[in-house]
Amino acid sequence: MSSSWLTTRAWLLMLPLLAVMVGVIGWPLAETVRLSFTDAKLVGTGGDYVGLANYSKMLTGSAFQKTLWATLWFALASVAIEMVVGVLAALLLNEKFYGRTILRALMILPWALPTVVNATLWRLIYNPEYGAMNAALTQIGLIDAYRSWLGEPGSAMWAIILADVWKNFPLVTLIALAALQAVPRDTIAASLVDGAGPFRRFRYVTLPHLAGPLMVALVLRTIEAFKVFDIIWIMTRGGPANTTRTLSILVYQEGFSFQRAGSGASLALIVTLMVSLLALAYGGLLRKTAGRMD
């Protein structure tokens, strides 16, 4: 059998999959790029070529900038809290105590829930009339009257961040817990003999072994948080007063609610570019961390 036949056969075998990939990824992407240079509406005719008008309109619009800040705020706050809470939970679950195995299994639960279920659950908790949050806070005397947590611009974003943290910190815990198993017992023993207290022991013995895996968790979580859509859409639809509107929601509104397919497409591509840059930057960071970790 000649090698050229082998090559041909390989291509033939891959052809169906290639066709599917071109069909469901390649073509829509190309269409999005094409649409982004037109003033097409969601329904109706194809629209006319408008050059970079969509891009300049989107990038300079106040909605975009406000939304970008909201997205960054959500991503930074939720990921930061998830990392801290996740690592603390992992340290706790790494200690020996009665019921540890059950608690470890239970901890995965929020992460295993579909986001839609999680978001609905928290909407019920935040309900201004019969929500558990209001009941709990009034009963312990922290607030005087029931509040609409998701209805007030001051608290809506925090309420969503709390819900997101509850759902996603278990991923960080899981990764950190796995990494903690790799912390050498000898080095912990050495630090005890050397006289390091719990904080120094964490700083010089535990943390160096956590850094690499936590970097992976950080990358995954940041990129996901930057793209956040479903949890917010279900809880507030971007409101009140657009205070919880993130980039993905803006894309959806532009393209579907306002039916402006052209500018919606340009916005979608801008967001894609930003996430790609984020992924690239983190990729570099990861390689650097891996190198330092030997």
Binding site: P184, T187, A189, A190, P208, D294
Partner: peptide, 14 residues
């Protein structure tokens, strides 16, 4: 006392 371990047990980032 001071102790020396089989795996050296050095602090990796110091």
């Amino acid at each position: 006392i001071a102790m020396v371990f089989q795996s050296y047990a050095l602090y990796p980032n110091l």
